[in-house]
Design a protein around this nucleic acid. Structure first.
Lengths: 218, 218
DNA sequence: AATAATATTTAGACAAAACTAAATATTTGT
DNA sequence: ACAAATATTTAGTTTTGTCTAAATATTATT
């Protein structure tokens, strides 16, 4: 697969949300920041190669083979993201662009060894699951912190309320996007939560918890 | 710079042995495993871009700017080689192909952080020096082990005698290409050497030492 | 159901990087 | 110094991936 072909495969995969749904030419063009006519050309080629199924005017989806390739690319992308954050001190929002390049490196041994070196991580710095070598992975969902059962943990991926006071509060309590948060205990009386974040344990109100999105394995 | 342009720059750099010598079209074509006519086209383009100086029928050399690019590529290549060997357990002879791909990744932060992560190594697994960010590096030379002064160390890069008995001896004593060897002391009487190799100290005859090539910083 | 709006494809062109075959320049051998 | 051998360039094609403009199909509206 060429670089360009791999990029199209990834785009089709992501637009189809991992399910094997047909996606439109225009949607692919927008995602790839290219023109619909270029997409038509490429999906024809991918179809001839057995990577995709293209029906003129109807859209395109990945074949079994195409999905395998997509999963391998996602695996590589996310493993590199973990590497950049864990080993090279990148922050969670700096990794995408570089991982986008690294995911195209071709070497099975490289990825196997990288996986091992990182301790076989299950999720990337954004909380998204890393497919296994065979292409299996756990689904993750986004939930508000106060909806999450005691004992589970997830990665902080967003806020519902983005007002300055709330953001200031998060900053003061050293809660940042990308952090892993575990729910240790819930206070029955007021719904407040005892959570662990980066080795330290803190106590937050239900109102705070209902404005923080976490990504957890379903 | 495109991938292809970078490959040509590296080829010109290596054929010129790092000095800024003119190299012939044919030499570049052979190194790149391509045709001389393709080289002519490309060096014209590189010349227009200010990367190389091309004189028809005379050859091509790198400009100041081109040399900077070449050194940055060499730096990236060798740092990745160290990473592969030190962190991902590749052996010294497996790294080249993968490093060849990794050297094209574009991110200054990535290389700075990688350098730091690896502890600012001075040489790669083949004993070749790693240019600094500014493009400076120490020259290295290849010498037979018995010619090396006491106290210096280098990397084992080859054998003079490649007969089965000698190779068997090396194997038995766990001396392999890529290993770092230090000369601890020389025995005046018979010219035998006490050396350190991978944490252990051993004693070898002058005859053995005169058949092992090391790469040392000059 | 007919027309307007939108989405998609086709046809033709272009740039990058390669190639082949032919033309031209340089070097070498005597 | 001249012919033969070798090296290099030029001219014309090819492939990949892109683009624009025009043509055609689909969907939405009334």
């Amino acid at each position: 697969m060429t670089l360009s072909e791999e990029d199209y495969i990834k785009a089709i995969y992501h637009l189809g949300k991992g399910e094997n749904t047909m996606v439109s030419t225009n949607a692919v063009a927008e995602q790839m920041e290219t023109k619909p006519s270029s997409v038509t050309d490429m999906v024809k080629k991918l179809s001839e190669k057995g990577v995709a199924n293209y029906k003129p005017y109807k859209g395109v989806s990945l074949s079994e083979y195409g999905q395998k390739i997509a999963l391998s690319l996602v695996r590589k992308h996310r493993l590199w993201e973990v590497f950049l954050v864990e080993k090279l001190d990148f922050s969670w929002d700096e990794v995408h662009e570089v991982a986008e390049q690294l995911e195209h490196i071709k070497s099975e041994k490289l990825i196997d060894q990288l996986d091992k070196h990182l301790g076989y991580p299950q999720v990337d710095p954004h909380g998204d699951p890393i497919p296994s070598k065979k292409g299996e992975f756990k689904k993750t969902i986004k939930k508000l912190l106060h909806e999450i059962p005691t004992g589970t943990s997830g990665i902080c991926v967003g806020v519902k309320d983005s007002s300055p006071p709330f953001l200031k509060f998060l900053d003061k309590n050293k809660i940042a996007l990308g952090d892993t948060i575990s729910v240790l205990e819930k206070e029955e009386f007021d719904g407040s939560l005892y959570i662990r974040i980066k080795e330290s344990k803190i106590h937050i109100s239900n109102q705070i918890a209902s404005n923080l999105y976490l990504k957890i394995t379903a």
